[in-house]
Design a protein around this nucleic acid. Structure first.
Length: 680
RNA sequence: AGCGGGGUGGGGUAGCCAGGAGAUCCCGACGGGCUCAUAACCCGUAGACCGAUGGUUCGAAUCCAUCCCCCGCUACCA
């Protein structure tokens, strides 16, 4: 019942890295498993094409380039090369790694957009776009900032990043300001183009029903579609990007030309290898997308609808990886919870295969994966060094010392069976994108090998019966051969060396799983084996831990400093009268309870010396236990106009500060005072 | 609050859809053994009221109901 090898052509892609920043371990959570998957498919005899490339368009790149006083083209080139190198260094080998700014992609995007237009899936609509009169330009997405219509916080044009985090459509932002000149922007009507996504609802539901891959992707997408599908605005006012056909002032939205990169990279690969790209994108094929969990929406909804609308083949499988944590903390570049692939890992001399092993074996692909140096050390030392590496080394050294070649001896049926079952189990795991299971199953064969060797005590046998001992060794070497083949997808460069140590002269990367059952040849010369995996010392992990915590410390400092600065700058002087308008009072909390529907809010009743206690809502749930609060005194701004929060009325504001961890610190009187005591 | 995913010994997991004997495996901890090997390997021990409560059943981690908690994407953060 295995799905591979299949007669249908198989194409594997990885979500495109955005060429606007360095590669971190979070990226690898998608790329490493994809590479393992591809290598494994090839071992089943499946032909696969594996493509990826840099995502180069969109406003963040343009804005970032302007800030760095460079051009988008230069910026993109720099990071494209960075990703290309990093992936190669990590053993992630694509058949093609292009960019979405390649001419191929421009042409393919225009073709697809034209087809969508011809098929009547695109229509123009007049919408209001922020426009800066001083710069004489329209301001898409992040070129404009202003006030969020939902929460009133400062927000960027496409998203309320400081406040509620909500996605903003063009024209929604209030009090728009141009980010280039700082001048006040205005809204101006302009014609933009929309893709009729809403018409694809039935198609998408049908498509998703049969979609292979991980369930997180499918369920998530189905949920979205059932809610609502609105048409997508697919044009932007930008210089940088793919021209929208027939409109020199418009560019196609990044999320249109980015996935089309999958097609154009396939074309580039086909061009270079004299092959045919249409068998994947126009025929009955198996297109497998490896992506991060954050872009499921685009790959399961927008992308297949576009392909369908333009008459191309749709994805067969979408494999979405879970999130990455660093030292058990939510991944965050700004907070310092990040591990850069180059400067934090490879440049410290760690072997790429070790990280590949960790990523593949920590947990299942869809769950969140914690990267911790201590766990890294423990896993590498006990599993790779202790179980697997030690097995290879002890048997090869023993064989080399006592025989100098692979000794004669039939392979036990028990051993062949064990290898056979292991291959069955591992390949099945791989088909289900269960990388951890694959590794664990393979590792259990190494344990079996250790037990086999140990229980037969060849170090004693060698003195009594050299032939019987040789047979034990032959069986062990057979197990080792299978292990090296099984582990090649996960730790490819280390397995090259191991393969050589086994006296093999073929290319391990091209060796199929079936070769594991082929009996080893007695008499093959064995060189003196070298140690494959070195132990990671405590000092090393301590050093890495220090680097991490230092970065977190600096990030906190920077964050606090920044807040101080901006606050000092933005607040203008007020008059004494202004201050006297604030009615500040000391009060005693008499009752506190959590507001169920909210993560952050507590409902407080505060005695301000009035007839009945005031009901005030405060965002301190995360830091304060409601049971501990009654009796405590706080300072309240009592004449703030009432508001409803999460449906609960709030008649004032409890004053609190924020410490370096972002935790709320309640202000309190120096000593107990009568409720209602005036402050100021 | 809505949608999705998830809660099983210290960490990571299996089992759940098709309910049945002592809840699986790996790591870690502890004890012992062995010595070919990178102090590794082998054997053994402890450790889980299977998120909570109620229900169905002769029998539930597994089915049903309600609730709690964690993680994403949304709403809210006086």
């Amino acid at each position: 019942m295995s799905k591979f090898p299949s007669e249908k052509p198989v194409l594997v892609t990885c979500g495109l890295p955005y060429a606007n920043g360095k590669a971190h371990v979070g990226h690898l959570r998608t790329y490493v498993p994809a590479d393992i998957f591809v290598r494994s498919l090839r071992k089943t005899g499946q032909e696969v094409t594996f493509v990826c490339g840099s995502d180069t368009h969109g406003t963040p790149i343009v804005v970032n380039a302007e800030e760095l006083k460079t051009t988008p083209g230069e910026l993109v080139k720099k990071y494209h090369e960075h990703f290309d190198h990093t992936f190669k260094d990590m053993g992630v080998i694509f058949d093609a790694f292009g960019t979405t700014d390649d001419p191929t992609n421009h042409e393919r995007t225009v073709d697809i957009v034209n087809r969508l237009i011809d098929n009547d899936y695109v229509y123009p609509k007049i919408i209001e776009i922020a426009y800066c009169a001083r710069c004489d330009r329209f301001l898409p997405d992040r070129y404009v900032k202003g006030t969020c219509p939902h929460c009133g916080e400062d927000a960027r044009g496409d998203e309320c990043d400081q406040g509620c985090g909500k996605h903003l459509e063009p024209g929604e932002l209030e009090v728009p300001v141009c980010t280039i000149c700082g001048g006040v922007a205005e809204y101006k009507e302009q014609e933009h183009y929309f893709f009729k996504l809403s018409e694809f609802k039935d198609f998408l539901l049908e498509h998703l029903k049969d979609l292979e891959g991980t369930t997180n992707a499918r369920n998530y997408a189905i949920g979205w579609i059932k809610k609502e599908l609105t048409d997508w605005c697919i044009t932007r006012n930008l210089e940088w990007g793919v021209r929208f056909p027939g409109h020199d002032d418009l560019v196609v939205y990044v999320w249109v030309d980015a996935p089309i990169g999958y097609i154009s990279f396939t074309e580039e690969w086909a061009e270079a290898n004299n092959d045919d790209w249409e068998k994947y994108w126009k025929g009955d094929s198996r297109i497998i997308h490896f992506i991060g969990g954050d872009i499921i929406y685009h790959h399961c909804i927008f992308w297949p609808a576009m392909l369908k609308g333009a008459g191309y083949s749709q994805p067969w499988s979408v494999v979405a990886s879970g999130m990455l944590k660093i030292e058990n903390k939510t991944f965050s570049k700004s907070r310092g919870y990040v591990v850069w692939v180059g400067e934090d890992y490879l440049e410290h001399g760690f072997h790429a295969d070790l990280l590949r092993y960790y990523l593949a074996s920590y947990t299942s692909h869809t769950k969140e994966l914690n990267f911790s140096w201590d766990v890294f050390q423990e896993k590498i030392n006990s599993e790779l060094v202790g179980v697997f590496g030690n097995f290879l080394y002890r048997i090869l050294l023993f064989a080399h010392k006592n025989y100098g070649e692979i000794p004669a001896g039939n392979i036990d049926q028990e051993v062949l069976d064990k290898i056979g079952y292991t291959i069955e189990d591992t390949t099945e795991s791989m088909e289900n994108y269960e990388f951890k299971k694959y590794v664990d199953t393979a590792m259990s064969l190494a344990s079996f090998g250790n037990a086999y060797f140990q229980s037969r005590e060849p170090w004693k046998l060698i003195k009594e019966d050299k032939d019987a001992c040789g047979k034990v060794l032959a069986n062990c070497i057979q197990i080792a051969k299978a292990l090296v083949i099984l582990f090649e997808p996960v730790i490819p460069t280390k397995m090259e060396i191991a393969w050589e140590q086994l006296g093999m002269e073929t290319d391990i990367h091209a060796t199929p799983y079936s070769e594991a059952m082929v009996e080893i040849k007695e008499g093959t010369r064995l060189q003196k084996p070298s140690i494959l995996f070195e132990k990671i010392e405590d000092d090393t992990t301590k050093k890495m831990d220090n680097i991490s915590s230092e970065r977190v410390r600096k990030a906190i400092e920077k964050e606090c400093g920044k807040k101080e600065e901006t606050k000092m700058e933005t607040k203008e002087n007020i008059t004494f009268d202004d201050f006297m308008n604030l009615d500040l009072r000391a009060g005693t909390i008499v009752k506190a309870e959590a507001i169920k529907r909210s993560k952050k809010l507590l409902k407080l009743e505060i005695d301000l010396g009035e007839d009945i206690p005031r009901q005030i809502v405060a965002g301190i749930k995360a830091t304060h236990d409601p049971e501990q609060l009654p009796g405590k005194q706080v300072i309240v701004l009592s004449n703030l106009e009432p508001a409803k929060l999460c449906g609960v009325e709030s008649n004032g504001m409890v004053l609190a500060g924020v410490d370096e961890n972002g935790d709320a610190i309640l202000l309190a009187p120096e000593k107990k005072v009568a409720p209602g005591t005036r402050i100021g």
